[in-house]
């Protein structure tokens, strides 16, 4: 596994009922890097996130996350590794029977290592980060789609994981809410410097992330001045027919001559 890599996929293949979904996928995500995964529906983007977490096992190939070989670990051993990874699911996957507070505090409650006061402080901090501290006592059923995603982000980042996995965090949301979510991802990236894999259908979301930074003094996202875009550690990966057809920075994507890629980004 390459040094300073957060995630490494080495020739990973996965299929369902004789249909190959991922066919020899290889890439690596560096520490502190954000990689946006693209591909048509059913191309296996979300599967890559689930494989990273060890929620499913590949048919072939090897996967390393934070130096541990996920494909060689037993389920019991994976729990320890998963504590260092945060994931935001496509439909938020908040626990219906728990309040927003308990959803966000879930990981801390399960670990049982922090006291009640410290837990409340961290939950409040995470919810303040996503600007939803007023929803603490509400239940997921009372929240809008965008609010659920923001709570899911707060839940994923409660213990400051080293790797964050976002599965279509802006899917099905209106443009204004989508921008709010992207601003949160930029904030998370620039404030906590975590590595992340972002699955999205919206190319503009990834380009926004590649061309903006979070201004902590003004608490908002700002565009990078021309010539500074290379300062953001952000790359793009495109899947087609189960294979990686592009893996590189925004600039390379923009000048790509591949017909499919040109059509995809147009």
């Amino acid at each position: 596994m390459p040094a300073a890599s957060a995630v490494v996929f080495d020739n990973v293949s996965l299929g369902f009922q004789e249909r190959s979904v991922l066919d020899g996928v290889s890439f690596h995500l560096a520490q502190g890097e954000t990689k946006a995964l693209f591909g048509v529906a059913g191309s296996g983007k979300s599967l890559i996130l689930k494989l990273t977490l060890g929620l499913i096992k590949p048919d072939a190939g090897r996967i390393w996350v934070l130096g541990e070989e996920v494909t060689a670990l037993r389920e019991q051993d994976l729990f320890e590794l998963r504590r260092r990874i945060g994931m935001v699911f496509q439909e938020s996957a908040l626990f219906d029977s728990l309040s927003v507070h308990d959803n966000v505090a879930y990981r801390l409650l399960e670990e049982g290592k922090v006291g009640e006061g410290e837990m409340d402080r961290r939950v409040r901090e995470a919810l303040t980060f996503v600007e939803l501290e007023h929803t603490m006592d509400m239940f997921p059923g009372e929240l809008s789609g965008g609010m659920k995603r923001r709570v899911a982000i707060a839940r994923a980042m409660i213990n400051q994981p080293e790797v964050l996995l976002y599965d279509s965090p802006t899917g099905g949301l209106d443009p204004v809410t989508s921008t709010t979510i992207i601003e949160l991802l930029v904030k998370q990236r620039d404030v906590y410097h975590s590595s992340s894999l972002l699955v999205t259908h919206r190319l503009q979301d990834a380009f926004t992330m590649a061309s903006h930074y979070f201004d902590r003094s003004e608490n908002q996202m700002r565009p990078l001045s021309p010539g500074h875009h290379g300062q953001i550690s952000m790359s793009f990966l495109i899947l087609r027919d189960g294979q990686v057809i592009f893996d590189g920075p925004a600039h390379d994507l923009a000048v790509s001559r591949d017909e499919y890629i040109r059509e995809y980004i147009s």
Partner: peptide, 14 residues
């Protein structure tokens, strides 16, 4: 089907 069990596993719970 709402991925809550996957979320539980992702959050380190068996």
């Amino acid at each position: 089907v709402t991925e809550q069990i996957d979320a539980m596993r992702a959050l380190g719970t068996d």
